[in-house]
């Protein structure tokens, strides 16, 4: 059913796409390699962190659906204020991709999960692409993908992007998530402190009242508590509501990025 024959690499042709897929993950986990595999483009890849400094976009067609794929800069977290993290964060938040593929380094899973959990806080649809499985094998690291998938509530796809392994499964999974065949039940952080829970709840209620169609008001509340100036501004001038309105207008995104 799903094989490479169903994939058509469209390069930079992103006209009339049906779905938007974001690629996120820690630096140097192979996001750009996955991006190149799927789009047929030649984003510069190399074995060092921080090559992708802006987002790159490309397209592919799978099962008669056109996808726009957005390669985000690698980040360790979404909570700091550096430019590359903001690019990634704002896209996942405001660009509202139909699914976010999180590329993780299988040899350093625990640390990569820190970012995974943060992304799961702000989006409902995600896939974990467990890359560099060959290296994990060389280091005798074994990963129970089914257990991981159950715990995280999202599909987990092992891969070796450098050798184009696991890409068919990833495509199939992307298709299942965007078409609603697979419903993600993303893990949400437990054991936040009591005071924090109270504060977040209080703020979330107020935010939802003012901006009713916000999908991740909780996270906006967290950012407000943190004192994130860009979110404060977005609330003050009402942009927050606009960003989430039906029109996912590109210009808005461009200024954010």
């Amino acid at each position: 059913m799903h094989n490479a024959g169903n994939l058509k690499r469209l390069g930079i042709d992103m006209s009339n796409f049906d779905f938007v897929v974001a690629l996120a993950g820690n630096p140097n986990t192979g996001k750009s390699t996955v991006f190149n595999n799927l789009t047929g483009l030649k984003q510069h890849t190399g074995n060092w962190p921080g090559k992708t400094v802006t987002r790159a976009e490309g397209g592919f067609e799978y099962n008669d659906n056109k996808f726009k794929l957005v390669d985000l800069p690698g980040t360790y977290s979404l909570l700091s204020t550096s430019t590359d993290e903001e690019v990634a964060r704002n896209f996942i938040l405001f660009g509202q991709p139909d699914v976010t593929v999180i590329v993780a380094d299988a040899t350093r899973l625990e640390r990569n999960l820190n970012l995974v959990l943060q992304i799961l806080e702000i989006t409902d649809r995600a896939i974990l692409c467990l890359n560099l499985m060959d290296e994990a094998g060389r280091h005798n690291i074994k990963i129970d993908e089914r257990m991981l998938s159950k715990d995280l509530g999202i599909p987990v796809i092992p891969s070796v992007a450098r050798y184009n392994k696991g890409m068919d499964e990833l495509l199939a999974s992307i298709y299942e998530v965007v078409s609603g065949k697979y419903v993600c039940k993303p893990y949400r952080l437990k054991s936040k402190s009591k005071e924090l829970n109270v504060a977040v709840e209080k703020l979330t209620r107020q935010i939802t009242e003012e901006f009713p169609n916000l999908p991740n008001a909780q996270w906006v509340a967290l950012r407000l508590l943190e004192g994130d100036q860009s979110i404060i501004d977005a609330i003050r001038n009402g942009e927050l509501g606009k960003i989430y309105s039906v029109e996912q207008n590109k210009t808005e995104l461009e200024t954010v990025v």
Binding site: L79, N114, V116
Partner: peptide
């Protein structure tokens, strides 16, 4: 606190599925 919570959650999940050599 938030970071700690993220770290401890991540660690718990990783423990359940990763077998280190």
């Amino acid at each position: 606190t938030l970071m700690e919570s993220i770290y401890s959650n991540a660690s718990a999940i990783a423990k359940r599925s990763v077998t280190l050599p």
